[in-house]
């Protein structure tokens, strides 16, 4: 029993990390309808900026400055490029961010080289805070969880509970109306995109030293963040939050399950050893844990295309 609580807790830790990494993407997608493929690249920029700042001033100033810088770059990208592409539709927007991701990776290589940079956890937080089941949890990990929860509370508060949030939401569905009400719709979008990329940058500041800061980190973050927002439901912040936790728990728990489908079916007398794709069924669940989120995503999309809490189909 204690073992399961332990894995559940680990799952929540991982889920919160996932939410931290995908919150910016959710914000941009739910407010603007843009699926930002360069999200992970902004995450990487955040990590590199924070590293650069930390070499001069230490970790803490970078926590504020780096996300702001990344957000500014994001806002400029929206203002000068994304807005142009917007006319050609969502596919063009998506492809633009796809190309942008390529360029950012190359630019990072040019500036910081291909080796990992020594961006480390601040010494103030580099100690074990408590232990569960013989495993220590570092203060930094708890700090990451706190940041993730703060992000959620803050975003939820702004979007659902404030007037600005309502204007932003209305700007997506009824841009003309919002425009005639005297709001500058393009500027709202620019700010939203800046805020979303800034959140990605913040995740990079915090994730870069917990993991590894290197030019492949954007690629390594990969498509898992898309899984989070798709499963959660396109456009739903709460959905993304729940999806993060769910995926975190599923994946972490699966690592602990050392049996395969073949084993399970064997207990009820079914022999899967000679059926098609038998190699797949004989794989232990723990070995395929990291690809379960993708399976989960496909299942969700097939069974409930709008996701857990989604409000619209596409």
């Amino acid at each position: 029993m204690e073992g399961w609580i332990f894995f559940l807790f680990n799952g929540i830790v991982y889920g919160l990390l996932l939410f931290m990494m995908s919150s910016g993407l959710t914000l941009i997608f739910s407010m603007m309808g843009v699926l930002n493929f360069a999200h992970a690249s902004f995450y990487m920029l955040g990590a590199y900026f924070a590293y650069q700042i930390s070499t001069i001033t230490g970790f803490w100033p970078g926590l504020i400055v780096a996300p702001v810088l990344v957000g500014c770059i994001g806002a400029l990208v929206e203002r000068y490029f994304l807005r142009t592409v917007h006319r050609h539709g969502h596919v063009a927007e998506l492809l633009f961010t796809f190309g942008l991701a390529m360029l950012i990776e190359e630019a990072v290589v040019l500036i910081w080289g291909r080796n990992p940079v020594p961006y480390t956890v601040p010494p103030d937080l580099d100690f074990a805070l408590f232990q569960i089941g013989g495993m220590s949890y570092s203060a930094y990990k708890i700090f990451m969880m706190a940041v993730s929860i703060t992000m959620f509370v803050f975003l939820y508060g702004v979007i659902a509970r404030t007037r600005i949030g309502q204007i932003i939401q209305a700007a997506l569905t009824h841009p003309e109306t919002v425009g005639t009400l005297g709001h500058n719709v393009p500027r709202i979008f620019m700010l939203v995109f800046g805020a979303g990329t800034g959140l990605a940058g913040l995740a990079g500041v915090i994730g870069g030293n917990a993991f590894v800061t290197e030019p492949g980190m954007a690629r390594a973050l990969g498509t898992i963040v898309f899984v989070v927002i798709i499963v959660g439901g396109l456009g739903s912040l709460t959905g993304a939050f729940i999806a993060s936790l769910l995926i975190g728990v599923i994946q972490t728990t699966a690592v602990a399950i050392d049996v395969s489908l073949t084993d399970i079916f064997a207990t009820v007398g079914l022999d899967l050893r000679n059926v098609p794709l038998h190699e797949l069924w004989s794989k232990r669940i723990s070995d395929v844990a990291p690809i379960l989120p993708y399976l989960f995503m496909v299942l969700i999309l097939v069974l409930r295309p709008r996701g857990l809490l989604g409000t619209r189909d596409s």
Partner: peptide
């Protein structure tokens, strides 16, 4: 991304 479950 996170090897904690394996480490556990």
């Amino acid at each position: 991304k996170d090897f904690s479950p394996y480490v556990a």
